[in-house]
């Protein structure tokens, strides 16, 4: 079998201690290992404080990693020097939760879509505009949107722009951080359909982070459940959603079925 696109081994992320004499905080990500095979979607589930955001930031090299390795597309990703990193970053596209916060309010859509291209080197204005319009249409918006600004768009339209920006350099890995949780149900359905189409057309691999279990069950081939910085359970979507072995996973997945159980669980946790 081929090497997986993304392979994480024993990753530990720990933030700086807050004061000179305070004890170092516990690791935000603690010995996490996971694999994302090429062409598949991995769902990453966890609540606040589970370490999933720190894990993402480590993959994006926004936080220093204490130990462990990340291999991406054959590279030892953490060992890449800053200079070659900038060029290699095009292998990852990122879509964040709130498109209105992740798109600069003062730039036009054309400028927003041109930004990743210019970051990789000079692109003639005409070519950059054509590529932007093409990608925008792929994401279901007409080219006339190029001259608008993000704040003039609806939530669904803005998220389409964010997806177009993430894809414009033809990344192999698309990281989606709660891409639909700020959207309405009907818009969420449109975006999930769009992502499914794009995955097929462009042969993308996806890391899909969410707390919405219905969404994660719908999109993922495999699911990883994180809690307190550790992976508590990992496996195929069917296995995790139908026969979870960990109590915590059952509690997560059981949401919508047994509420009194949830409150009882809380009481037990406290005592």
């Amino acid at each position: 079998m081929d090497e997986p696109l993304l392979q994480i081994r024993d990753l530990v992320v720990r933030y700086r201690r807050t004061g000179l004499f305070s004890a170092p905080p516990p690791p935000a990500v603690n010995a996490v290992s996971l694999e994302l095979p090429t062409g598949s979607t991995l769902g990453l589930v966890g609540e606040s404080g589970s370490g999933k955001s720190s894990l993402l930031r480590a993959i994006l090299r926004l936080v220093p990693v204490e130990s462990g390795t990340i291999r991406l597309d054959g590279d030892d990703w953490l060992a890449l020097p800053e200079q070659s990193l900038r060029e290699r970053r095009r292998a990852i596209g990122v879509v964040a939760q709130n498109p209105f916060l992740s798109l600069s309010p003062r730039l036009s859509i054309a400028e927003i879509l041109a930004e990743p291209m210019t970051a990789q080197g000079r692109v003639p204005a005409q070519e950059s505009r054509e590529r932007a319009a093409e990608m925008l249409e792929r994401c279901g918006l007409p080219g006339t949107f190029l001259d608008r600004r993000a704040r003039e768009l609806s939530g669904g339209q803005a998220q389409r722009v964010a997806i177009a920006r993430a894809l414009i350099l033809q990344p192999k890995l698309l990281i989606l951080d709660e891409p639909t949780s700020a959207l309405d149900i009907s818009v969420q359905a449109q975006i999930l359909n769009l992502l499914a189409d794009l995955k097929q057309e462009l042969g993308l691999s996806m890391l899909f982070v969410t707390h919405n279990l219905k969404v994660v069950r719908h999109v993922s081939d495999k699911i990883v459940v994180m809690r307190g910085g550790r992976v508590v359970e990992a496996g195929s979507t069917e296995q995790i959603s139908l026969a979870p072995t960990e109590a915590y996973t059952r509690q997560l997945m059981g949401y919508g079925r047994n509420l009194s159980g949830a409150e009882a669980a809380l009481c037990r946790n406290r005592h």
């Binding site: 926004l62 990193l85 990122v94 990743p116 990789q120 920006r165």
Partner: peptide, 11 residues
């Protein structure tokens, strides 16, 4: 987030 997005894109 849009500043972080720019950093991630390698700007």
């Amino acid at each position: 987030p849009y500043i972080e997005a720019a950093r991630v894109m390698g700007v």
